[in-house]
């Protein structure tokens, strides 16, 4: 990385507009494109250099998750229409390469193994499924969640797959055998509101620290009014070896927010994308701190985020139909106006 990231220098450097509110977003592994999905069921691709937008359409519902092959050549989209669709990520006029009816109901999460051979999917049917990424062939199923599966993450070793659910549980599966080997109890990530009769919360995001010694599970807590969006963002930091909760990250001044996603920056801080009634924020926590050392306002409710391979650019998907590109580096100096020519 040529430039060291500076969260306190965060600023929105670029915006890409669409016709419908956005849902999620991901950079392709090469960093050339940013992909997003929208409430009009489309998948959008913007070329970061030119700003050119390409629209992918084939899903019969909203698209909740995106994943890529390691070379960035193939995009896999997961719909709320039960389907996984394989696409050429770079095609000028993209059409589906393969459609797989993968789940009964919404597919909420995708993950790709580090070696790029395996794809995992999970959603409202409470089952995690493993696929051969190159050809979409089913490999294995991991039943066992009591409620909807919200998030997925492969351990970089390839040995384990992690899945988080609505009840705040993270299941650790052995990839080769399908055996459930451990559960992380993220109790703070779930609540049942008896007056409203609803379960709420969930493991909205999973991430490993760069040294793989800790696992982050994020979402919301203090849900005093789930149906009215009164809740606060939270991330739980577990020690991988022992499964012990070692730190809780909160942001008490964000009274109406959820951490839609957290990512670990390679240089250390935990970055969370919060959206809710207070607006949209990027929150930055040090490993040993409960409260964020920096909060950056994005100007509109954010619904998802991704970190560019350069470690400097962060994409966020927004309700106001815009994708914002935030840079963790100082703004370039404004060009100095040329002196007026004299007569």
């Amino acid at each position: 990385m040529a430039i060291k990231a500076d969260p306190k220098a965060a600023h929105v450097a670029q915006e890409f507009a669409h016709d419908a509110p956005l849902i999620t977003c991901r950079f392709d592994p090469t960093g050339r494109f940013i992909f997003a999905t929208a409430e009009d069921r489309s998948i959008l691709r913007w070329d970061l250099a030119s700003g050119q937008k390409t629209v992918f359409t084939a899903h019969d519902s909203w698209v909740g998750a995106l994943a890529f092959t390691n070379d960035g050549a193939t995009l896999i989209s997961a719909g709320y229409d039960d389907q996984l669709i394989w696409w050429s990520a770079t095609a000028e006029k993209p059409t589906p390469i393969r459609k797989v009816k993968a789940h009964a109901g919404w597919i909420r999460a995708l993950a790709v193994s580090k070696d790029g051979k395996l794809l995992a999917s999970g959603g409202n049917d409470r089952v995690v499924k493993l696929w051969n990424l190159p050809d979409g062939a089913p490999i294995r199923e991991f039943p066992g969640h009591d409620r909807d599966v919200y998030s997925l993450l492969f351990h970089p070793s390839g040995q384990f797959l992690l899945s988080g659910d609505l009840k705040g549980q993270v299941h650790q599966w052995e990839v080769a055998s399908g055996k459930l080997t451990r559960k992380f109890e993220g109790k703070d990530l779930h609540s049942y509101n008896g007056g409203q009769g609803v379960d709420f919360g969930g493991v909205r995001s999973l991430a490993f620290t760069p040294d793989l010694k800790q696992l982050l599970a994020a979402g919301l807590h203090k849900a005093s009014n789930p149906l009215g969006a009164v809740h606060e963002p939270i991330a739980l930091r577990f020690e991988w070896e022992t499964g012990k909760l070692v730190k809780t990250h909160v942001s008490e001044d964000v009274k109406q927010g959820v951490l839609w996603r957290t990512v670990m920056h390679p240089e250390g801080p935990l970055i969370g994308c919060s959206g809710g009634g207070n607006g949209g924020f990027l929150l930055f926590w040090a490993a040993d701190a409960e409260k964020p050392f920096h909060k950056f306002s994005l100007g509109n409710t954010a619904r998802e985020m991704d970190l560019h391979p350069d470690g400097i650019q962060i994409a966020t998907a927004h309700y106001d139909k815009k994708l914002r590109l935030t840079k963790l580096s100082p703004k370039p100096a404004a060009p100095t106006a040329a002196p007026a020519k004299k007569g």
């Binding site: 919404w106 409203q196 609803v198 379960d199 149906l227 009215g228």
Partner: peptide, 15 residues
């Protein structure tokens, strides 16, 4: 009860 879903209408209607 309850369908007063100002927040996450789709998740709660699913539930």
């Amino acid at each position: 009860s309850n369908y007063d879903t100002h927040n996450e209408n789709f998740n709660f209607h699913f539930e």
